[in-house]
Design a protein around this nucleic acid. Structure first.
Lengths: 348, 348
DNA sequence: TTGTACGCGTTATCAG
DNA sequence: CTGATAACGCGTACAA
């Protein structure tokens, strides 16, 4: 719908009987201007409902107050909370957030990157997927500051990272199960092509090793971040001659599906299976039994990401690459118990 | 971090031995250009890694491919899913999405509006709160196309709306309970200052009326979209001489808290209380019993919103205001049953 | 303290 | 089919 053109500095200047330069100085609290004319200009601005044109300003100053946020799937409660916090903290810095979603699809991620580069965003916060290392590096080389959250692509140096200490978290979760007497502990994790997947598997392994338990490959399932594959993986593990007595789910994208499928199969928690899940989603505390979770500091994660990006954006010095790892907390709930007598997990 | 300036049309033109205008025509598939030079220009673009500068283009063409999305709280699963779908469908149209969050705070909403106006976004999709009717109207008057989702501010004509048929949904939910023999049905809804709150209360009332039941004000709680107030409201209703035997929760922001508090109080579902909740969140099907829900067509909601906005953006004709109401589906699960013998709901 | 003039990168117009 | 030129709205040196 076409409307009358929005007022410009020129209009304001005319209305106030000054020159455009003066108006600019007023709105940007830049150069000096007499109090009298300042008042007059301010009045004209209000009178005309003047609003500086972002694009023009960006063009002239060669900078924006917009950042990009690239996540896999905002419908995933983990990313949803992360997004909410990032948006809130960005607003505190006066930064707008251009949100983009990839569905874990490298092609979509590439399109996101391309969009953000055209928009010349000032910086980007991203939970990177796999396969676009070159594109991310390119982005950084072009001067767009970059902060990775949650995940790392360790092939790319010079990019700040803020994530969780996944190794320790997985270690703690596994150890808690071991200490309750479990010996056959299964792990459903994300792909080991992602940093989070790798780190969580590492922590799991370390815990097993410390208890002199040989790792059983059949008990480790690397699932893509999609619903498909969940049922097969669960059935495969449950159908083993010696099925697991405990399960750690380190893949937030599928954890609800895993738990739901266990329910559907009639697996009783924690009698038949003890369960620990990464991320303290809403449902964890609503279920019966309440699910033991690894609780992340999502707000701190977001705050650090925004702050790191912001500081980097405002310093010409290419600071050394920083990496922050936040501790997670193991919240024991009733889905964890000592193993019971051996029996088949599923009636097949 | 300062980097060498990005290449411009001028650079590309030089490199290809043509004029800037030709380059522009090539990238925009606009005017006509000989195949030979087109190839050459394309090669130069690739060679220099040229990317059109969004801001410059916006300045010149007086238009953007960015829209705003204003929601209350992306951490709320309802809005999270909505956001995901909006972002995805927008991407299909080549639209970037500037996400903003208000926490149901009018002041934050106003800041969002201001940000989006400065950015001169092409259009906005918003679930508007209360108290900024004038600002929204102003935005529309300035030529920014507007589509409201989920909620309506009916004081503002000329703005497209796509929402759910809340009245029917609440009516259906209430009726399902009535038909199972419930007579004392409670309702926890959002503030009646919001359209969704009002409509859901209306539907609830109509259902009661059709069954010749007088409305009991003590059984209707209008809760703000915040956690606080949940416990008091629940306790107040449970403490009545004649406590409700069924409950409809029409406020997605607090529904999980309501259910959790009921659990904590030892209220058994559905024996002590039948429950229906708006929005089919992840946890509804994970709980024991599984919760009966009103399931919305969130993807259709988002798709319609984006499509309406897109069509409006691309037609100079100020089309008549359109309003779309999507049906919701009542998904009966085991949290609903016939009322049992009367007993106190809480041991006080 | 204020005004002027130029350039940011792009596209539309108009001659050639 | 191509090239030159102006203008989009703003900030900023520099001159007044």
């Amino acid at each position: 719908m076409a409307r009358g053109r929005a007022p410009t500095v020129k209009d304001v200047a005319e209305h106030a009987g000054v020159s455009p330069g003066v108006v600019s100085r007023v709105v940007n609290a830049n150069g000096s201007v007499s109090e009298r004319t300042r008042k007059r200009v301010l009045a004209s601005i209000k009178a005309l409902d003047y609003r500086p044109h972002s694009a023009a300003r960006e063009l002239r100053t060669r900078t924006t107050n917009t950042i990009g946020l690239v996540l896999a799937d905002v419908a995933n409660p983990f990313f949803a909370h992360l997004a909410e916090h990032v948006v809130r903290h960005s607003a505190e810095f006066g930064l707008g957030v251009l949100l983009t979603t990839t569905q874990e699809d490298p092609a979509m991620e590439l399109r996101s990157i391309e969009l953000l580069m055209q928009k010349r965003v000032r910086g980007v916060i991203a939970a990177p997927g796999t396969g676009n290392a070159a594109a991310w590096r390119h982005m950084r080389d072009l001067g767009i500051d970059l902060t990775f959250v949650d995940r790392v692509i360790d092939r790319i140096p010079g990019i700040d990272v803020v994530g969780m200490d996944n190794e320790s978290a997985a270690h703690a979760a596994t150890t808690a199960l071991l200490e309750r007497g479990h010996r056959r502990i299964a792990l459903v994790s994300g792909p080991s092509t992602t940093s989070t997947g790798r780190e969580r598997i590492d922590g799991y392994r370390r815990a097993l090793g410390e208890h002199d338990i040989a790792e059983n490959p059949a008990l480790v399932a690397e699932l893509a971040f999609q619903r498909s594959g969940v049922e097969n993986a669960v059935r495969a593990m449950a159908g083993l001659d010696e099925p697991p007595t405990a399960l750690v789910v380190g893949n937030t994208a599928v954890s609800a599906h895993v738990v739901r499928y266990l329910q559907e199969c009639g697996v009783r928690l924690p009698e038949d299976l003890s369960v620990v899940v990464f991320h303290d989603a809403e449902w964890a505390k609503l279920m019966t039994p309440q699910i033991t979770v690894v609780r992340h500091q999502l707000d701190a994660l977001a705050r650090n990401a925004v702050e790191m990006l912001h500081s980097r954006m405002n310093s010409d010095e290419p600071l050394r690459r920083r990496e922050i790892r936040l501790d997670s907390e193991l919240v024991i709930r009733s889905s964890v118990a000592a193993p019971r007598k051996r029996r088949a997990l599923l009636e097949t």
